[in-house]
Design a protein around this nucleic acid. Structure first.
Length: 938
DNA sequence: GTAGGGTTAG
């Protein structure tokens, strides 16, 4: 009924002569808006009676009540209700009008009034019951609706299609399948199964209860499918269950059956256009929308807008958006969110302002998108602007806005502001807690994060997988295996399963050094993607298992999972750790093919990999090829030079970096200082250590001090180094003593060595490396009793030293050797080759075993034998056996190369006329023509 | 239409 028609009815009741109203040529301007609370003009009983036809008046009143219901005009409805009460009707008329009133109150959202009227009625028809059930359904009390339905059955009221349909809606809301199925049975028994309302509601009910098969059986069984609603129910049923293909074929079937689609049809069909379906149907449906004249239907066009956004066709979405005649908040918010999800933050910001200028009031959703944008950009200013807007417009108390505000401040690094907003929130949910837990975990406050999590547990708040994900971040930060296990147990106990969380667990256990646990979680996870593999590869790499990491690379290939740039980073690290030039080049080739070389992080990893694999020239190529370089890239190149003993080159690059105004950071200085130390560039090292603090205002880390002490120690400036340790309060830093002790070994400084040894074992009693170092210092000064004592102490503490080993890549295999190794299949041939080579060097190159480097108390003859079986020599011998080409022999060793092996390799390079490149724990040694690149200084 | 957690180079 239109407003005009209502006006006409009303004017017919007016006290003025009817003719006047009827003859009035003026078009009435009085219009009832949907939520109008304007009082209606209610005719008196006398006036109605004067009309002569009482029945007619009841009909008129009924119309008025219905109109109030559809217009949701509660006040008007209440006035008519009062009027009906005054009339004191009885009999069928009263039942008829009161039923309408129940319906009206239900529609107007006044369920209490509906119930009161319903309860007072002594006589009810099926329509009365239906009205009451309907009122419960639309007002969110579906349980009451089902109770009423049961009452009806108990009282033996004859049900009709509307009863069943409304009650089914209630069961759908509650997702109670058995109740819905029961009604299905009743419908069959009462012969109401062909009623279109019943079938449609049944289809919807089965969909809501996840029984899509029952829904489609019902739909397909329908004899007549003329009603668009039936099709709509089924199409949206498929769409909701992500059976997009089925939804779309039904849509096409519907068009072919010449059933006119409605708004709902389009909305459901458009939603089904995702991924591959988009390319096939999306644009076609768009055309149908235009053809059938739905381009002005805001719901449908909003659907199209979202479809293009979801399928990354932002250009087309924008075209639609800017051509829309009537944009509602959903249209604006969709477009803003589309920009934000695609990182187009400026566009989002402009649109937000345009929205306000167009007179459209941003709501909580608009604010959330804008806050996400400012958080991701780290743009505090815009974030605070939005915060202010939310305060001015009373949107700050919204839970979701509050949560997003907390996250925005967290992402902008403003934890104090974050705390303030969090503290003032009226309500908090698991999202709020997860957000601050993650914020603390990622901002060096891992213990605070764990503490907050314990608070959540203590207060019995809801914990979900996402919250666990945040807490696990704190475990990574703390490297606390025990805590990781505790949380893992909690997850198992609570049955919280989430593939995301599993990947985090893999990486957490990896970071905590528990590679076995990481591996078992990885193996047991059902769905493995590139992130799972990357997490596991990183775990392997971090725990020194580079071979295993590269093994996973092959697994990925077999499973047809393509590596992304993050995965490649860990592969490159693994190749670098193994010095596997072959693997490294393979990965480089992959990067070229996939066009991934533009990532800064990839380039620095490549530089590092080539340097670690002994080809500094390739590092240079990658470095020079990059047009713009970030500080990490420069640092990698400096490090690469340092690794190869090219201190001068490292300093050159550092100076170029300064010239180009690229700011060096802590790690850059660490690389330069190391390079100076390895190349004995004492004065340069001192100068650089100074400018780090004076020019760049960088406070040295313990690592810088250790490096500086190492630099002085290596140059035998031991006293100066010791003074610095004392004056700079560095006595608590183990690495500093380690550096000093190393120097004491080389220069056989007993007194200082003693002090350093004591200090080191006191500071780090559980580090096996320290005991080895101390023991070596004693051995170098022939203190065999002390050597023995250190060995016993170590054993008593259950500490094992890493055995020295060397490895070499031949073909696609890496061969590993420990000292005196007898495990290689070609063992005999290797020893034969080595003996032959040693003999030649002794006779022709003047090699004499220097037994003072054997740090064991054994006979002289035994010492010579031990030296001759060192792992790097076995690797050299094997490479001579395995390859006849003239390529350099590349060997990697986990510890440092001993002085005797250094001499041996040097002589061998001249005698064999082959370059030998040995990478040890510290750096590279290039032996060529009887000379070493390190100038015998290492 | 909308908020929180995962792998990442020197």
């Amino acid at each position: 009924m239109t407003a005009n028609a209502i006006f006409q009815i009303m004017s017919s009741f007016s006290s003025s002569p009817p003719t006047l109203a009827m003859n009035s040529q003026k078009v009435p301007t009085f219009k009832i808006s949907p939520n109008s609370q304007k009082p209606a003009i209610i005719p008196s009983l006398k006036q109605i009676c004067r009309q002569g036809n009482f029945k007619e008046s009841v009909f008129t009143l009924s119309n008025l009540i219905e109109t109030s219901a559809f217009e949701k005009a509660l006040l008007q409805g209440q006035q008519i209700h009062a009027h009906v009460l005054k009339l004191g009707l009885s009999g069928d008329d009263a039942v008829f009008l009161n039923t309408k009133i129940v319906f009206m109150y239900g529609k107007c959202g006044s369920i209490g009034d509906a119930q009161k009227v319903f309860d007072r009625m002594t006589k009810r028809t099926v329509f009365t019951w239906n009205a009451m059930i309907g009122a419960c359904v639309v007002n969110g009390v579906p349980i009451r609706a089902i109770e009423l339905y049961r009452d009806m059955r108990f009282l033996g009221v004859v049900l009709d299609g509307h009863t069943l349909s409304s009650t089914l809606k209630a069961t759908s809301q509650l997702e109670i399948l058995y109740c819905g199925s029961e009604i299905h049975g009743v419908a069959i028994k009462l012969g109401l199964i062909s009623n279109v309302f019943v079938v449609n509601s049944l289809v919807t009910m089965y969909t809501k209860c996840n029984d899509i098969r029952a829904a489609s059986l019902l739909f397909n069984g329908m004899s007549e499918k003329e009603d668009a609603v039936s099709w709509n129910s089924m199409i949206s049923a498929y769409t909701i269950n992500r059976m997009n293909r089925e939804a779309l074929s039904l849509f096409i079937e519907m068009l072919n059956a010449s059933v006119e689609p409605t708004t709902y049809t389009f909305v459901a069909a458009i939603q089904a256009c995702e991924e591959t379906n988009f390319g096939k149907f999306g644009i076609e449906i768009h055309a149908v929308v235009l053809k059938l004249g739905y381009s002005f239907d805001t719901y449908v066009v909003n659907g199209l807008l979202m479809m293009y956004i979801k399928n990354n066709r932002l250009d087309e979405a924008a075209k639609i958006f800017f051509h829309m005649q009537e944009k509602d908040n959903i249209s604006w918010n969709s477009m803003i969110s589309g920009y934000v999800q695609n990182g187009l933050y400026d566009e989002a910001n402009n649109l937000f302002h345009e929205m306000k200028n167009a007179g459209q009031k941003p709501d909580h959703v608009s604010l959330m998108s804008m806050l996400v944008a400012s958080g991701r950009q780290g743009n505090l200013l815009i974030g605070m602007e939005i915060h202010a807007f939310s305060l001015r417009n009373d949107l700050d108390s919204d839970l979701q806005v509050g949560n997003t505000l907390v996250d925005m401040y967290a992402k902008c690094g403003k934890l104090d502001y974050m705390d303030y907003v969090f503290g003032r929130m009226l309500h908090r949910d698991s999202v709020s807690w997860t957000t601050i837990i993650a914020a603390y975990a990622q901002n060096n406050s891992a213990w605070k994060a764990v503490q907050l999590f314990r608070e959540v547990l203590a207060e019995g708040n809801n914990v979900d997988a996402l919250m666990i994900g945040s807490v696990l971040l704190a475990c990574t930060e703390l490297r606390c295996n025990l805590l990781a296990k505790e949380i893992h147990c909690y997850v198992i106990k609570r049955g919280i399963y989430d593939p995301f969380m599993q990947k985090t667990l893999v990486s957490v256990y990896g970071d905590c050094g528990n590679v076995d646990y990481a591996n078992s979680i990885f193996r047991l996870s059902e769905v493995k993607d590139v992130v799972s593999f990357t997490s596991m590869m990183c775990s392997y790499v971090q725990n020194g298992l580079a071979n295993e990491a590269l093994g996973l690379m092959l697994c990925m290939n077999e499973m047809a999972i393509e590596a992304d740039f993050v995965a490649v980073l860990s592969m490159l690290t693994a190749a670098a750790d193994l010095s596997s030039l072959r693997k490294g080049k393979e990965i480089h080739g992959f990067l070229v093919r996939k066009d991934l070389l533009l990532q800064d992080s990839i380039r620095s990893s490549l530089i590092d990999m080539y340097a670690s694999c002994g080809t500094l020239e390739n590092s240079y190529k990658v470095f020079n090829y990059s047009k713009s370089k970030d500080p990490v890239c420069w640092t990698s190149m400096i490090n690469a030079c340092g690794l190869h003993g090219c201190g001068r080159k490292a300093i050159d690059i550092f100076m170029r970096m300064e010239k180009e105004n690229i700011h060096p950071d802590h790690i850059t200085f660490l690389a330069v200082l190391r390079a100076c130390s390895h190349a004995a560039l004492i004065e340069d090292g001192k100068r650089i250590f100074k400018i780090m603090q004076s020019k760049y205002a960088l406070e040295p880390w313990p690592e810088h001090y250790a490096c500086f002490v190492d630099l002085l120690g290596r140059a035998n400036h031991l006293e100066e180094a010791f003074q610095i340790v004392k004056t700079m309060n560095l006595e608590d830093i183990p690495a500093v003593w380690c550096a000093l002790l190393g120097a004491c070994q080389v220069y056989a400084n007993k007194e200082l060595g003693e002090i350093a040894a004591m200090k080191l074992l006191e500071l780090e009693p559980k580090n096996p490396g320290n005991y080895v170092l101390v023991s070596n210092v004693y051995a170098a000064t022939n203190r065999w009793d002390d050597v023995e004592e250190v060995r016993v102490t170590m054993k008593g503490k259950g500490l094992n030293k890493d055995p020295a080993c060397s490895w070499i890549e031949v073909g696609d295999k890496v061969h590993t050797f420990v000292a005196q190794d007898k495990s290689h299949p070609e063992c005999d041939k290797i020893y034969e080759k080595l003996a032959h080579l040693t003999e030649k060097l002794e006779k022709e190159a003047g090699y004499v075993a220097q037994t003072k480097y054997v740090l064991h108390k054994v006979e002289e003859k035994e010492k010579v034998k031990l030296l001759k079986g060192h792992s790097e020599r076995l690797a050299i011998a094997y490479s001579l056996l395995a390859s006849t080409d003239r390529n350099p022999i590349r060997i990697t060793k986990n510890l440092r190369v001993c002085s005797d092996c250094h001499t041996f390799s040097k002589l061998a390079s001249k005698f064999l006329e082959r370059e030998i490149i040995v990478r040890d724990a510290k750096r590279f040694h290039h032996f060529r023509d009887g000379i070493c690149s390190c100038g015998d200084f290492w």
